[in-house]
Structure formats: structure tokens, C-alpha cells
């Protein structure tokens, strides 16, 4: 009885904190206020202060985790909505997206080897530009650490969104579609929400880029991972 109480409490705590940090983000819209960052920081502090183990926390939170699979399946919905764009520009879009996935993967691999980190860190680094739920699924298959890939994906998301306006200006990336594609390919969902500032065409391209690169990455990365 005591156990199930703790379970329900952690479940409610997580959902409540999420809703609260969502309100905070909606009010100020700052990339550092991304709900996941706020919520996770508060939960971690809580666990440390009150000396709860991650295992205890997970007994309740695991119910939220179960929705991750169907959420990835739901990514087919935006892809279906924007399928016209994909049909019209199949070749340029696919080529740019696949190149983006490869650049992200191999540059990550290169830097990790330069720094000289362990194998499971490298495996968790490969899918960092992919939308977080898919990145986690890929690391689960390839043998990395899902908790670590989330951190990398968050750095890629927030870092990309902050640097994007300067990059577009300095390197003269002018069309809304290219800007959207860059944001979606490098900074996944966080990038796609930034693409809103460049218009609906940018959002559509960005969400196509995000979904297709997730698909491409989930095929390529497990193969690369078996070579590393």
C-alpha cells in the first residue's frame, strides 16, 4: 500500500511539474525555459534533497514512459499532413536530409574519438540531432545510454536554436525552406518550434526534415553502431 502511494505521488508530481513548466515556457518563450529542462532540474533536486533513488522514482514514472512508443508512431501524422511538400521536392529534400544525418553522425563520432570517451558515450552521441523520443529508442537498440542521449539532444536543440539566426545571416541561407530544413535536421522539435518565426513553409519543411531524419537515422545508426 505504501509503495503504490509513492508510485502515484511520483506520477502526479511529474505530470504536475510538467504542466507548471509548460505554463512558464508559454509565458516567456525562452529556449532555456524548455519545459523538459525546468521539470527535470526540479525533479533531480527533489530526489537528491529527499534522498530518493532513481529506481524508486521510476516505479511511478514508468507509466509515463510507456507512452513514448505511441508518441513516436504519432509522428506519422505531421509527415502525412506535409506529404505534398515531400512529393514536390523529393530529391532535394531527401538528399539534404540524408547529408545532414551523416554530417551529424560522423562529426559526432570524430569529436568523441578526439576527446577519447568510452564506447557507450559514443553510441549515445550518434543520434543527438534526432528528435528525442526516437534518439532514445535508437540508443536502446544500439546499446548506448538513453538518459545521456537526451542531454545531448537537448544541447543540440537549444544550442542550434540560439545560434541559428547568426548562422543564417553569416552564411546567407535565405530561403524559408532551407532555414526550416536546417533547424529540423540539426535541432529536431526545438528547431521546428523556432521555425515558426520564418513562416509556415519553414515549419512544414522543418517537421518533414525532423521526421525523415529520424527515420533515416534509425536505419543507419544501428548499423554504424555495430562497427564502432
Amino acid at each position: 500500500m505504501k509503495h503504490s502511494l509513492i508510485e502515484i505521488a511520483f506520477l502526479a508530481f511529474t505530470i504536475g511539474l510538467y504542466l507548471l513548466s509548460l505554463q512558464l515556457y508559454r509565458r516567456w518563450r525562452h529556449p532555456f525555459l524548455t519545459p523538459i529542462l525546468t521539470a527535470v532540474t526540479v525533479i533531480i533536486c527533489f530526489l537528491i534533497i529527499f534522498d530518493f533513488s532513481y529506481e524508486t522514482y521510476m516505479t511511478g514514472a514508468v507509466w509515463i514512459d510507456k507512452l513514448l512508443g505511441p508518441a513516436v508512431v504519432a509522428l506519422a501524422y505531421p509527415l502525412y499532413i506535409h506529404r505534398g511538400l515531400l512529393m514536390k521536392y523529393t530529391f532535394p529534400l531527401l538528399l539534404s536530409i540524408v547529408t545532414g544525418v551523416c554530417v551529424g553522425m560522423f562529426s559526432g563520432l570524430f569529436f568523441a574519438q578526439m576527446i577519447g570517451t568510452s564506447q557507450d558515450v559514443i553510441l549515445s552521441l550518434l543520434p543527438k540531432s534526432v528528435t528525442t523520443p526516437v534518439a532514445m529508442e535508437i540508443t536502446r537498440v544500439s546499446g548506448g545510454m538513453p538518459s545521456i542521449v537526451v542531454v545531448f539532444a537537448m544541447i543540440a536543440g537549444i544550442g542550434g536554436v540560439i545560434t541559428a539566426p547568426f548562422l543564417f545571416k553569416w552564411f546567407k541561407i535565405k530561403s524559408d525552406m532551407s532555414r526550416g530544413l536546417g533547424l529540423g535536421a540539426a535541432s529536431h522539435a526545438i528547431g521546428t518550434s523556432k521555425a515558426l518565426e520564418y513562416g509556415s513553409q519553414a515549419v512544414a519543411t522543418s517537421s518533414v526534415a525532423m521526421t525523415i531524419s529520424a527515420l533515416v537515422a534509425s536505419i543507419i545508426i544501428p548499423i554504424i553502431a555495430s562497427w564502432v
Binding site: 551529424g104 576527446i115 544541447i155 543540440a156 530544413l181
Partner: peptide
């Protein structure tokens, strides 16, 4: 050091994929 590495790699992805599509579209 992994943090700056991820940042640089992210910037590379954004630039190369964006410039490539810009090239195709023009």
C-alpha cells in the same frame, strides 16, 4: 568537452543541410 563538441556538430548539420537545400532550390 562533449558539450562544445555537440554544439559544433549541431552547427555543422544546420549549415551543411541548409546550404545544400538552398543550392538545390536556387
Amino acid at each position: 568537452l562533449l558539450i562544445p563538441a555537440v554544439l559544433v556538430s549541431t552547427i555543422l548539420v544546420m549549415l551543411i543541410s541548409g546550404i545544400l537545400l538552398d543550392f538545390f532550390m536556387s
